[in-house]
């Protein structure tokens, strides 16, 4: 602790971490810095902040995209709720119980993780079209839940599988059903995993672009990723307004940031409090 080599080592590690942080954060800084530039400022002064700050990038973009934000938030919240709930439930069942067909069904779910997403893009589009889901919220929510629950299932499975059997024994002796066990013991303990799953699946739902692009054309259903792309479409070279584009991306990242800060606390606290240990 007090040895000079220790202190040296520690300051060196701080230095290293600082460098990593700087490099990792550069894109974020670049995005925010650029979001305050006018088109002309961007092309003439690329690497440094410029004055005057163009706050109007934000007001202009916000006016254009706030309905998309509502859509994205709604779709993400419902999808993530579904992903967490279904993933936890089936993960719990598979991890704590044995039943005929368990093994094959397990691999049936896990195997889906390896399907390249683009492979199923066109077939999946045809399916949702046959179901008449095109241009409804369901075409966004249901496939997200379906696809997202796979990873969720896997994480919950690992977590529930690692819990000691003793936790459940007394409940079983009291005659608690499967769902009761899930609700009172499994769900109660799994807050850290919920945080993890919520973050990971929110990211993928929120940032998805191609699926909403192909399945929704109704302006009222447009989500952020598609919306930002639409208003920033550049028809002429040298004229892409990166200032507005990045202002849009910055706004798009904000709701995610809120969720992230909230869920991370849960997640990290869970880790350090020892929920995953012993």
């Amino acid at each position: 602790m007090d040895k000079p080599t220790d202190r040296l080592l520690r300051s060196f590690s701080y230095l290293l971490l600082g460098i990593f942080l700087l490099l990792t954060f550069y894109p974020l800084w670049f995005m925010i810095m650029t979001s305050f530039k006018s088109l002309f400022q961007f092309y003439h002064n690329f690497w440094w902040p410029t004055r005057p700050l163009h706050l109007d990038n934000y007001t202009r973009v916000f006016k254009l995209i706030y309905p998309y934000i509502l859509n994205s938030v709604g779709v993400t919240v419902v999808s993530v709720a579904g992903i967490v709930f279904l993933g936890a439930l089936s993960g719990f069942v598979f991890a704590r119980f044995d039943f005929p067909g368990r093994r094959i069904l397990f691999y049936g779910i896990i195997g889906l993780m390896m399907l390249p997403w683009i492979l199923t893009l066109v077939p999946a589009f045809m399916v949702v079209k046959q179901l008449g889901l095109i241009d409804t919220y369901w075409v966004l929510i249901l496939p997200y839940i379906s696809g997202g629950q796979v990873l969720s299932f896997y994480l919950f499975y690992n977590f529930f599988e690692s819990l000691p059997e003793e936790l459940f024994e007394s409940a079983r002796l009291d005659g608690a059903g499967v769902f009761q066990q899930f609700r009172h013991i499994g769900a109660a303990l799994s807050r850290p995993v919920i945080g993890l799953v919520a973050i990971v699946s929110s990211l993928s739902v929120w940032n998805n672009f191609i699926w909403p692009l192909v399945t929704t054309s109704d302006e009222r259903l447009t989500v952020l990723t598609v919306g930002v792309m639409r208003f920033s479409t550049a028809y002429t070279s040298g004229s892409i307004d990166y200032g507005q584009l990045f202002a849009g991306y910055t706004i798009a990242a904000l709701p995610l940031l809120v969720l992230f800060l909230f869920a991370t606390r849960q997640f990290m606290r869970g880790l350090t409090a020892g929920a995953l240990k012993e």
Binding site: G74, V77, T136, Y137, L221
Partner: peptide
């Protein structure tokens, strides 16, 4: 509330 927003069918 968000759920309600998301579920309202256009």
């Amino acid at each position: 509330l968000l759920l309600a927003i998301a579920c309202r069918s256009p």
